[in-house]
Computed example of a mutant assay.
Amino acid sequence: MTASGESADPSSEMLEATMTAAASFEAFDACNPPGGRALTAQEKQALDQYVEEGRWPERRAEAVDRISSLIREGRTSLVMTDLRLTRLPDLVTTLRLNTLDVSGNQLHELAVPAKCSFFYVSGNKLSSMPVLPEDTRMVFASDNPIREFRGPLPSTLHHVQAANNALDTIPPLPPSVTYFNIAGNTGRLAQADVDARMRGTRGAAVA
């Protein structure tokens, strides 16, 4: 459902939003040439320890390779999908990203970058979504056992795809939110409740 109460096809909505997000961060990278740097000794040590602490079938070495390349090349889109990771390196919390894609892992909690606009965290084992950075615009978090989104939600947020979770509660929605899909939710929260909140929030903002 949209904020106006009109029905919408969730799959087409998600596809359109994904394409929009992809175009946005590609344009962002195009307008911001790489400005990479070498990893510090402390960063290398922390990443080495992260790999050593991993257990099969996690592919932590591959994750570290991707993080190291991102830092060296000055890129802002970090993709670590389907690596069976149970947690992310603490170093992720220091990164200033445009996009973080860690879909299809085994994460029980999410390390949140210092800056990030697009989060792709579907298909994990997250029980809650942590507080998101203020620049966050879109969150794709379907197919998790998420019970809550921790607030406050950023004022820049406008699209949340959170189908097939176990949501009991969400924080107050900022007026910027125009889409919040919880189809297939097994928790106490209903889609009708979310839609009503969006209409109420946007109505209050207009008034």
Rank of each mutant, 00 (worst) to 15 (best):
D135I: 11
H108W: 04
L126K: 07
L107T: 00
A141T: 08
D101A: 07
Y120A: 01
A141R: 02
P145A: 05
L100V: 04
P152K: 06
D135F: 13
L95M: 11
L132V: 12
N124A: 08
R96G: 11
P113T: 09
P152V: 04
T136N: 15
S117P: 11
V121P: 06
N98I: 11
L97T: 03
L100P: 10
F119S: 11
A114D: 09
P154F: 14
P145W: 00
I146H: 01
V139G: 03
A111V: 11
F119C: 09
S127K: 08
N124D: 03
G151N: 02
V112L: 12
N124S: 10
V139N: 04
F140A: 03
S122P: 10
M129E: 09
R150C: 00
E134C: 13
R137M: 13
L132R: 12
N124M: 06
G104L: 01
P113I: 09
R137E: 15
P152N: 01
L153E: 04
P145H: 03
H108S: 09
H108R: 13
F140Q: 04
L110F: 12
E134K: 14
D143T: 00
L97N: 05
D101W: 01
E148M: 01
M138G: 08
R150K: 04
L97C: 05
L153T: 05
F149P: 03
L107G: 02
M129S: 08
L100F: 07
P145G: 03
L100S: 08
T136A: 15
A111R: 12
